[in-house]
Write a protein that binds this DNA or RNA. Structure first.
Lengths: 189, 189
DNA sequence: GGTAAACTTGACAGTGGGGTCAACATCAGA
DNA sequence: TCTGATGTTGACCCCACTGTCAAGTTTACC
């Protein structure tokens, strides 16, 4: 791969089929789905997959950032709609948790399980930055306990993501996690 | 295995070496350590390990409940020493988290990663019962928010255990988790 | 329609674990 | 000391997955 700038028609079709299959399989099963399965779903051999993408990370990067970006964008809009910094932070946290639960791939992305997927990592970095900003805003507004730090927010989301990945998690992990943020938000003195 | 009630001297020695090795390796690396490694540490082949114990679960059960029981017992004593139900609950949570962090094997046990290790599961059940009782006591005492349930406590410990297992966990997960219980304890109206 | 370049295939090797078994070794007791 | 019951060995098979490559197929262009 790489030298010829235009792919042969069949090759282009295969690449497209692979991307479609990858999107589906990744979204359904998470970013650690067997590449085998993606190749099979695309009706192509694993060799072809490697020929086109060379690594799991590259395949992820070719497919997931777009989806993740769109989802994050939508969440960003919902967050903006809130009137107060406290409201925005809460909307952000609940929205992120929702995204993580709905979509194993996004969850894996946010947990940074594949740091070599650079494009995807970029999307996550942005969302982390947004989260940090929301924490700062809420602090400035005086509606977030000052000992709830930016890192605490990221840890909270990490916990939620990790719990969401694990089928053996007791279901009330949600209570525990959300209590942590809501209590920090209601302690505005 | 099984019919002869007295093992040959060398066989007994091997079983003992295996138990010692298993204790060490399990405590150091968690209950999912390769059995290979345990056999090697005992100076014995994997066949011998299987000959004596037949499965990972059986080996775990032969070795870990004793340690786990002792640790839990010590924690129980420390908890008893507290004057109030709130104090006992807090001591229990912090103590459990400490145990989970200090000892991957105990952590795996409490997360019930090997439910077929029945003896071990028994020990965990007991500690769960103690936790539930402490929640009920604190509710009765009026020092624990009534929407913090027994299941919430178990979920909290599950979260802590899971975070502790994962080297990629952001370190402030501890803040997040402990805030959840401390806020529920300080909301006694 | 023939040919070279581009592409695909699938069998294969590698990894890292679980578990088995026929052949070999050792022990205990007569 | 000899023998058979008891134990042990480690090569071997299994699984699921990653990644490679020589041989075969298809396309694009003359």
């Amino acid at each position: 791969m790489s030298e010829p700038r235009t792919l042969r028609r069949d090759a282009r079709a295969n690449a497209a089929k692979l991307q479609t299959a990858a999107r589906e399989v990744f979204l359904a099963k998470g970013l650690d789905a067997p590449l085998d399965e993606i190749a099979r779903a695309a009706g192509v051999s694993t060799g072809t997959l490697y020929n086109h993408f060379g690594s799991r990370e590259a395949l992820i990067d070719a497919v997931i950032p777009e989806v993740a970006g769109a989802r994050m964008h939508a969440l960003g809009a919902a967050v903006e709609a809130e009137a107060t910094a406290a409201g925005r932070l809460q909307a952000f946290v609940l929205g992120m948790i929702q995204l993580q639960q709905d979509d194993p791939a996004l969850n894996d992305a946010l947990l940074r399980r594949y740091p070599d997927a650079v494009a995807l990592t970029g999307v996550c970095d942005q969302s982390a930055l947004l989260g940090r900003q929301l924490v700062r805003d809420a602090h400035a507004e005086g509606t977030l306990a000052s000992d709830f730090t930016e890192d605490d927010l990221l840890a909270l989301l990490w916990l939620a993501g990790t719990a969401g990945r694990d089928r053996t998690a007791p279901s009330s992990w949600r209570h525990v996690v959300t209590r942590s943020i809501t209590s920090a938000l209601s302690q505005h003195r």
